[in-house]
Amino acid sequence: MTRSSFFSVKPRLWQAAAGCALLTLALSSCSTAQRQADRLTTGSIPSVNLAKPVESMTAPELAAAEKTYGAAYDRNPKDRNTGLSYASILRMNGKNTQALAVMQQVAIAHPTDRDVLAAYGKAQAAAGQLEQALATINRAQTPDRPDWRLYSAEGAVLDQLGRSEEARDKYRLALDGQPNEPSVMSNLGMSYVLSGDLKTAEKYLRNAAELPSADSRVRQNLALVVGLQGRFAEAETIARRELTETQAEANVTYLRAMLSQQNAWAKLADKKPQATN
């Protein structure tokens, strides 16, 4: 089953905004929803040296990749590309503690590599070490050569810490460096879900979804926000696009279960929108 779904939403965001404590940052099980939760930022630092993006791998493909890269890592735990790829695969398999341990070793061997530090910060965030993740990402960022991906990753961590206004500032800095980047616009939209401003969230997500470079994860986030506003039929239509019938049914079934919980979306609808900066 593909990992491209609306379940890239941050777990703590769901808990705070939707009242649905259905996901955990630990991602301990192998459900589609939890594996997608690692896509905390849809524009996160990409894995390297993989023939296929981990987000689009099936469960058997992920298992095979974990075995292959695990063996390569055992042979040379200091290899940069192997470590980055192996940690990414481990996170997608819900093995966040192990992924963090791998990235710790890679970071020791490559202490000034920005991509390594960024991936290390992501591993820390996935393992629940949010303040440490923020410090690592900040260490990776350089004022003279700012990286929009790092700004986006920083924003995602700040959102998890409940510092949504600061997070949105980081997303806007990311958009300054990479205008109309759909992944960042999606993150910005989902940040507004955290404060219950679903209309603003939908605006950003619709704009992101209309961009030619937008991938399925952006459109699935849009489906989620539409569903939270009670427009379930429209949400299901969006959620079914681009996916196989089996994949779509799994996503829609989960969406229905989440949105059918007592007052889950109604509580959001009752909140006053936050002003857009």
Results as ranks from 00 to 15, higher is better:
M1R: 03
F6A: 09
V9W: 02
V9S: 05
K10A: 13
A17T: 04
C20M: 12
A21T: 14
L23C: 10
L27R: 14
S29I: 07
T32R: 11
A37I: 00
D38S: 09
R39N: 14
T42C: 06
I45W: 07
V54Y: 02
V54I: 08
S56P: 00
E61W: 03
A64W: 05
A64R: 13
K67P: 06
G70P: 01
K78G: 12
D79Y: 06
N81C: 07
L84M: 15
I89F: 07
I89R: 02
N93G: 04
N96C: 12
T97D: 10
A99P: 00
Q104L: 06
A109P: 10
P111Q: 09
T112L: 13
L117V: 06
A118I: 07
A118W: 01
G121H: 01
G121D: 03
Q124Y: 00
Q124I: 01
A126R: 08
L130S: 03
A135R: 12
T136A: 03
L150G: 00
Y151P: 00
G155A: 10
L158K: 07
L158Q: 08
Q160V: 00
L161H: 01
D169L: 12
Y171W: 11
A174I: 04
S183T: 13
M185F: 05
N187M: 03
L188I: 05
Y192V: 01
V193T: 07
D197G: 08
K199T: 14
K203E: 13
Y204Q: 04
A209D: 05
A214T: 04
R217P: 00
R219S: 12
L222M: 08
L224V: 10
V225W: 01
V225Q: 04
G230V: 09
R240F: 04
A248D: 03
A248L: 03
E249H: 06
E249P: 04
V252M: 06
R256A: 08
L259D: 00
Q262E: 15
Q262K: 14
Q262R: 14
W265C: 10
W265M: 12
K272Y: 02
